[in-house]
């Protein structure tokens, strides 16, 4: 075997070519969405060019908010901070509320999924509660917590928890009979069954739940912050509206959209790291 010396450079060449090809493909796939965005901007520009237009044109929007765009990190005290800080404090709330929801939701989901008594008792309740709009919870949580911040976190929690519970429950109930048969034949103990079979088999469902949950909580936080004030992207938008800074609102909406997308991608990415090939959905 004298081949290895020759093989290595050959391999890396192949990889370089491959990488180049991938980049090219990626660029190609960007062309269509880019054109779509340009057309959208053009239509926006045309429709808002008239003297009586209520909304600014895209060019005007960028001109108005140039300072916000180029410097997202300024902090002049109070609520007068750069967009990064606004988003950051919103994200902190979401992180806290969502983490709580994930922990409680997965635990509850497994409990409900493993016991058919619990399932028949609680599933109707979950089905009703999950349809309640997030903001409907806000007055109750304000009444309960008396403070703005915990109330916002609670709203996140209560919004995100339902899809997590429901998907986890479904995951537990959908464990393939084959895996249960293996567990029964091997007479696995309760804890072994939980860690070796039940939990791993449920993980794909849990991630589906988490993905829906994070989307919902990002929706909820913007709305909640509009009502409770303080630093945060939601209040930033409300504040801009009150001061008639329409351009600021538009730029904040772009931020909200991008961050929402990134959060969603983040969950998918983590799921990809955790799940083996056969279980990916």
């Amino acid at each position: 075997m004298t081949a290895p010396l020759d093989i290595r450079p050959a391999r890396s060449r192949v990889n370089l070519q491959k990488l180049g090809g991938q980049v090219l493909n990626w660029l190609k796939s960007l062309i269509a969405p880019l054109i779509a965005v340009l057309i959208f901007l053009a239509i926006w520009q045309v429709m808002t060019m008239g003297p009586n237009a209520n909304l600014p044109t895209p060019i005007r929007t960028v001109q108005d908010t140039w300072e916000l765009i180029v410097n997202p990190f300024f902090d002049y005290g109070g609520t007068d901070r750069g967009l990064f800080w606004q988003v950051w404090s919103s994200l902190q709330r979401v992180a806290l509320g969502f983490t709580l929801a994930a922990i409680v939701g997965v635990a509850l989901g497994i409990l409900v999924g493993t016991s058919s008594l619990m399932y028949s008792a609680l599933d109707p309740l979950f089905q009703i509660l999950r349809t309640v709009p997030p903001l409907a919870w806000l007055p109750i949580s304000l009444a309960a917590f008396q403070q703005a911040n915990p109330s916002a976190i609670f709203v996140i929690f209560i919004t995100a928890i339902w899809p997590i519970i429901i998907n986890t429950t479904e995951g537990v109930r959908q464990i393939p009979q084959d895996y249960n048969n293996v567990a029964r034949v091997l007479q696995l103990s309760k804890s072994q069954y939980f860690f070796k079979i039940l939990f791993p088999a449920t993980v794909p469902y849990i991630f589906t739940g988490l993905r829906i949950g994070i989307g919902l909580s990002w929706l909820a936080i913007v709305a909640a912050e509009m009502l409770i004030g303080g630093v945060g992207i939601g209040f930033f938008i409300w504040d801009a509206w009150n001061s008639s800074r329409i351009s600021d609102i538009i730029i904040a909406i772009v931020y909200v959209g991008i961050v929402g997308l990134l959060l969603d991608r983040l969950i998918v990415f983590v799921g990809g790291l955790v799940l083996p090939e056969e279980q990916k959905q």
Partner: peptide, 13 residues
């Protein structure tokens, strides 16, 4: 012990 028709290996192991 059973050798199942569809192997029944645990995919995460």
């Amino acid at each position: 012990m059973v050798v199942f028709q569809n192997y029944s290996l645990l995919p995460w192991l």
